[in-house]
Computed example of a mutant assay.
Amino acid sequence: MARLKIASWNINSVRARIGIVERFLIEHAPDVLCLQETKVINGDFPHEMFERLGYVHRYLNGQRMHHGVAVISRIPLVEDRRHDWQDNGEARHIGVRLADTGVLLENVYVPAGGDIPDPILNPKFGQKLAYYDRMTDWSAKLRDPTIIVGDMNVAPLPSDVWNHKALLDVVSHTPIEVEKMERLMASHGWVDLGRKFIEAPARLYTWWSYRAKDWAASDRGRRLDHIWASPDLAATATSFAVAEGARSWERPSDHVPIIAEFDL
Score class of each variant (00 low, 15 high):
Glu79His: 07
Glu79Asp: 10
Asp80Arg: 13
Arg82Gln: 12
Asp84Pro: 07
Asp84Asn: 09
Trp85Met: 08
Trp85Pro: 08
Trp85Lys: 00
Asp87Val: 08
Asn88Gly: 12
Asn88Arg: 14
Gly89Leu: 05
Arg92Ile: 02
Arg92Trp: 10
Arg92Lys: 13
Ile94Glu: 13
Gly95His: 15
Gly95Asn: 12
Arg97Thr: 14
Arg97His: 15
Leu98Gln: 13
Asp100Thr: 10
Thr101Glu: 12
Thr101Gln: 06
Gly102Val: 15
Leu105Asn: 13
Leu105Ile: 11
Glu106Arg: 03
Val110Ile: 10
Pro111Phe: 00
Ala112Lys: 04
Ala112His: 06
Gly113Ile: 01
Gly113Ser: 02
Ile116Tyr: 04
Asp118Ser: 04
Pro119Thr: 03
Pro119Trp: 02
Ile120Glu: 03
Ile120Arg: 02
Ile120Tyr: 03
Leu121Asn: 03
Leu121Met: 04
Asn122Glu: 05
Pro123Met: 06
Pro123Gly: 07
Pro123Val: 09
Gln127Pro: 03
Gln127Lys: 07
Lys128Ile: 07
Lys128Glu: 02
Lys128Pro: 08
Leu129Trp: 04
Leu129Gln: 01
Ala130His: 01
Ala130Ser: 01
Tyr131Ile: 00
Tyr131Ala: 00
Tyr131Phe: 06
Asp133Gln: 13
Arg134Glu: 08
Asp137Arg: 10
Asp137Glu: 09
Trp138Lys: 01
Trp138Tyr: 10
Trp138Pro: 00
Trp138Gly: 04
Trp138Ala: 06
Ser139Ile: 00
Ala140Gly: 11
Ala140Cys: 12
Lys141Asp: 14
Leu142Phe: 08
Arg143Glu: 08
Arg143Asn: 06
Asp144Glu: 07
Asp144Tyr: 09
Pro145Ile: 08
Pro145Asn: 05
Pro145Tyr: 04
Thr146Asp: 09
Ile147Gln: 06
Ile148Thr: 13
Ile148Pro: 14
Val149Met: 00
Val149Phe: 10
Asn153Met: 06
Ala155Cys: 14
Pro156Gln: 12
Pro158His: 02
Ser159Asp: 15
Ser159Asn: 09
Ser159Phe: 15
Asp160Ala: 14
Asp160Tyr: 15
Asp160Asn: 15
Asp160Glu: 15
Asp160Ser: 15
Val161His: 12
Trp162Ile: 02
Asn163Cys: 13
Lys165Tyr: 11
Ala166Met: 13
Leu167Val: 10
Leu167Gly: 04
Leu167His: 10
Leu168Val: 11
Val170Thr: 12
Val171Ile: 04
His173Asp: 07
His173Cys: 03
Thr174Ile: 07
Thr174Asn: 01
Thr174Ala: 01
Ile176Trp: 00
Ile176Tyr: 00
Glu177Phe: 04
Glu177Gly: 04
Glu177Asp: 11
Val178Asn: 04
Glu179Ile: 00
Glu179Cys: 02
Glu179Thr: 08
Glu179Pro: 05
Glu179Trp: 00
Glu182Pro: 07
Glu182Asp: 12
Arg183Pro: 14
Leu184Pro: 13
Met185Ile: 14
Met185Ser: 14
His188Arg: 14
Gly189Tyr: 05
Gly189Arg: 10
Gly189His: 09
Trp190Asn: 09
Trp190Pro: 02
Val191Asp: 05
